[in-house]
């Protein structure tokens, strides 16, 4: 029995084997995301999000710890105020740190690729929001108040992140987050001062309002998506 071998085919196969062997294994976070069912390209985009660094997770933990320590079971409803005020700001800052030439070293390289800037922004914002929400949920479960109210930050977080992304089409990401965050804090404080309920901003009316902000923010970002495809040099 004789065998014929195609040297070119052997070479191709050998190269394929060495490439598989030489390619570094994805990191722990990326492997975890892939196990959760995320496609390999999306998991790569998520782990490349500049905001998702150890320092941000530490800041996230510390800020929420402060919010949690400020809670007081002896004062019904008042106890959650600081936690609910701070919580939506955390992912908002993360979103600002996830995009733009100041945050992403590969920003200009990324702009020159066919990947839509809006898709990249939204993927990263979703990643930041997802990690923040998981973390905040854990913290909220530790709050002494009823768990339902302790999750009052969720919809405002969406609203604030969406507003920040929309504002990023007008100004630099960090400024956008600062403006959105300042308006949020002012709004919550005004609502608190206007009535007897310290959590007035987190009632149904407040939640609906923030849901509307989230939708409007997304619409504005989609309408002005060209701004995410160009370098912000003035």
């Amino acid at each position: 029995m004789s065998y014929t071998t195609d040297p070119a085919r052997i070479e191709r196969n050998w190269r394929a084997i060495t490439i598989e062997l030489d390619s570094p294994r994805p990191g722990r976070l990326e492997r975890m995301l892939q196990r959760l069912g995320l496609p390999t390209d999306v998991s790569r985009l998520v782990v490349a999000t500049p905001a998702l660094r150890r320092s941000w997770f530490v800041a996230l933990g510390l800020s929420m710890l402060i919010g949690l320590l400020a809670t007081d079971a002896a004062k019904p409803r008042d106890d959650l105020f600081v936690l609910l005020l701070i919580a939506p700001l955390v992912p908002t800052l993360g979103v600002a740190m996830a995009y733009g030439s100041n945050a992403d070293p590969a920003h200009e390289v990324g702009l020159a690729t066919p990947m839509s800037g809006l898709r990249l922004v939204l993927t990263r914002a979703a990643a930041v929001l997802g990690f923040s929400a998981a973390f905040l949920a854990l913290i909220s479960l530790l709050a002494p108040s009823a768990p339902a109210m302790a999750f009052g930050w969720l919809i405002p977080s969406f609203g604030l992140c969406s507003a920040t992304v929309a504002a990023m089409t007008f100004m630099a990401p960090r400024r956008a987050a600062t403006v959105a965050g300042t308006l949020w804090v002012l709004g919550v404080l005004i609502a608190r001062g206007a009535g007897d309920d310290p959590l007035a901003a987190f009632t149904v009316v407040g939640q609906v309002l923030m849901a509307v902000v989230a939708v409007v923010g997304l619409v504005v970002a989609v309408q002005r998506r060209d701004r995410f495809d160009l370098l912000a040099v003035r």
Binding site: P24, D41, L45, A106, V109, P114, L120
Partner: peptide, 18 residues
């Protein structure tokens, strides 16, 4: 614009995704 803590392969693969 290379993040110092990222592996060479990961940098180029990220752009391959983009």
């Amino acid at each position: 614009g290379l993040a110092e803590s990222v592996r060479v392969f990961d940098v180029v693969e990220y752009v391959a995704v983009l």
